[in-house]
Design a binder for these strands. Structure first.
Length: 305
DNA sequence: GTGACATAGCGATACAAGAG
DNA sequence: CTCTTGTATCGCTATGTCAC
């Protein structure tokens, strides 16, 4: 670096970080809320400060030079420390305008949102919640800092990701109360296998728990519809003779709302293990500690019966 | 043609230095 | 101490250039 710290604009490090993340001047500028031209000018100042091109145009992207790659880790760590220092004393939920970014698999939405939003409205009316449907666990979204917290089934965690099991959820069968088979004969194994199923599989799920459990008893269900989004499932079940197997916690919320019935699964199946996961760099961040507690409280909140 | 980056020129703002 | 002036910095719009 050509200048001492006193002369160096530390905001340039934030710009560097945005360029590393976005790999484009226009996108990095948008991320920082400035125009492409201003971002280009910032990149010029970065280049002067480090006496290196730092990012060079390669096709449609601005790829980092070896020098930029060398700096990236150090700058990221420095910014993490600054974030942590700023977070420590200043976070007051009542007045904070913090933006929490949360990734979740969509079947957890009915479970966590009503109590979580009520709590946040009461305790932190000015914070914003950005939610991404991540499907089942996507470690890279936590590692890249795209989300602060993920609520999902967790498997194969990267070493720098923490997690906490927050809930075990058994599966149930969900069907119309006037279903031609289950309404009269009940949700026996024979009846459940005689029905057509709507199968919900979040992105990232390769193998369904239900089908693995059925395999173990040499049984097989007839899947008529596969859904990648949970949102349409209750509607399909309420308007057709299709049945679904979903976790009990989600069923307890959607069944009363949609006039549906649920019954215990008539075959053994291990419960769904729901966990929250977060990156090492937010482990001690006051806002993130507070937010994790809010999510945990929301999951523990009593459900309306 | 379109999208993305670089550059020129301009205006707003901050700050230091000097005059009153 | 306050006001004025000069300078530096930064972001904006407009436009040029280049790759696809």
């Amino acid at each position: 670096m050509k200048e001492g710290l006193g002369k160096f604009d530390l905001n340039l490090l934030v710009a560097f970080d945005a360029l590393m993340t976005e790999r484009g001047v226009t996108r990095a500028g948008r991320r920082l809320g400035i125009t492409q031209a201003a971002m280009s000018n910032t990149l010029r100042r970065l280049r002067t400060a480090f006496d290196d091109a730092l990012f060079v145009k390669t096709g449609a992207r601005m790829e980092p030079t070896p020098r930029a790659l060398e700096l990236a880790g150090m700058i990221e760590s420095a910014l993490d420390l600054v974030h942590e220092a700023l977070d420590q004393d200043s976070f007051d939920p009542a007045t904070s305008r913090y933006v929490f970014r949360m990734g979740m698999v969509d079947y957890t939405a009915p479970l966590v949102f009503p109590p979580l939003l009520e709590q946040m409205e009461r305790n932190a009316p000015n914070v914003t919640l950005e939610v991404a449907n991540t499907g089942d666990f996507h470690g890279e979204m936590i590692e890249s800092g795209e989300v602060d917290l993920i609520l999902s089934r967790v498997e194969d965690l990267p070493p720098n990701v923490h997690h906490r099991l927050v809930r075990e959820m058994p599966f149930v069968v969900l069907f119309r109360p006037d279903h031609p088979v289950l309404a009269h004969g009940g949700a026996t194994l024979k009846n459940v296998l005689a029905c057509k199923h709507v199968h919900y599989y979040p992105p990232g799920i390769e193998e369904s728990f239900i089908d693995v459990a059925l395999d173990k008893i040499n049984a097989h269900r007839d899947i008529a519809v596969k859904l990648e989004s949970f949102g349409m499932l209750p509607t399909l079940v309420s308007q057709t003779d299709l049945i679904a197997t979903i976790n009990k916690a989600a069923a307890d919320v959607v069944a009363p709302a949609m006039g549906l019935t649920s019954a215990p699964l008539p075959f053994p199946c291990p419960p769904l293990q729901l966990a929250m996961a977060w990156h090492d760099r937010t482990e001690h961040s006051q806002p993130n500690i507070w937010f994790r507690e809010q999510v945990q409280q929301a999951l523990n909140a009593p459900r309306p019966q």
